[in-house]
Computed example of a mutant assay.
Amino acid sequence: MQRILLVDDEEQILQLLEMFLEMNGYKPALAFSSQDALKQVSGSAFDLAILDVCLEDGNGFDLARKIKAEHPKLPIVFLTGLSAESDRATGLSIGNAYLVKPFQPDVLLNVIQQQISGSPA
């Protein structure tokens, strides 16, 4: 079963994403902060990370850079409320995909499948 790290400081979003991913055959691990995410990444192997950009203890872009430094091949998907083109450009320069909330669950699932399989998004 493929493992996905979910990082968001909004508990309700994490719970919904957790249920959605489990229903689609993935094993999610939840992190409510950058620090928690970094601990989990250094202690476990993941197939994909889904990060919010705005976190209480930091910036998802900075977190992604730290994760990529340790795990350069780990696909990172940003799932955020930030819709400015400059944010999207920054996210795509660091990660593999950038989705804006609210999002369509089928689109997220498609992006996850493409990133894990290595297919172009």
Rank of each mutant, 00 (worst) to 15 (best):
V111G: 00
A29S: 12
Y26S: 02
G58L: 08
I4K: 02
S42F: 10
E10S: 03
K39D: 13
L92H: 08
Q114H: 13
P72Y: 06
G25E: 08
Q2Y: 13
Q15P: 00
Q12D: 10
L51C: 12
V100Q: 10
R88P: 00
A84S: 14
D9Y: 03
L14E: 02
K39N: 13
S83D: 14
Q113Y: 07
K73G: 11
G118I: 09
G25N: 06
F20K: 04
I67K: 01
F61S: 03
G95L: 09
L55Y: 07
A97H: 04
G81K: 13
L17E: 04
Y26D: 06
S86I: 13
L16S: 13
L79D: 04
L109C: 02
L55H: 05
G43P: 03
E85Q: 13
Q104M: 13
Q104V: 14
G95E: 08
L6M: 08
E70H: 02
F32C: 09
G58N: 07
G25F: 04
F20V: 08
A84D: 11
L51V: 09
L55R: 06
A97D: 07
H71W: 14
N59H: 13
D8E: 07
L51Q: 02
Q12A: 10
E70M: 12
T90R: 14
F61I: 06
F103V: 03
T80M: 04
F46C: 09
Q35K: 15
A69H: 03
L79R: 09
R65A: 11
L51M: 11
V100S: 05
R3C: 11
I116W: 01
P28T: 04
A29R: 06
P28E: 05
E85G: 00
V53P: 01
A37M: 05
T90I: 15
N59Q: 11
L92P: 12
I4F: 08
F61V: 08
L51D: 03
S117C: 09
L63T: 06
E85V: 09
V7I: 12
L21H: 06
F103M: 04
Q113M: 12
D62H: 10
L92N: 05
N96L: 09
G81D: 05
L16I: 10
T80A: 01
P102Y: 06
E70R: 00
G95T: 10
I67T: 04
P28D: 05
P28K: 06
V100W: 11
L16P: 01
D47T: 04
A89T: 11
I67H: 01
P72L: 05
N24P: 02
Y26M: 02
R65N: 12
R88N: 00
S86T: 15
T80Q: 04
A45D: 14
K27S: 15
S86P: 00
T90F: 06
L99C: 07
K27E: 15
G91M: 12
P120R: 00
L38H: 10
S33C: 07
S119M: 08
L82D: 05
H71C: 15
F46L: 07
L109M: 07
R88T: 01
L38R: 09
L48E: 03
D8P: 07
L82K: 15
N24A: 06
E70T: 10
I94V: 14
F20G: 05
R3F: 09
V111E: 01
K39S: 10
A64R: 04
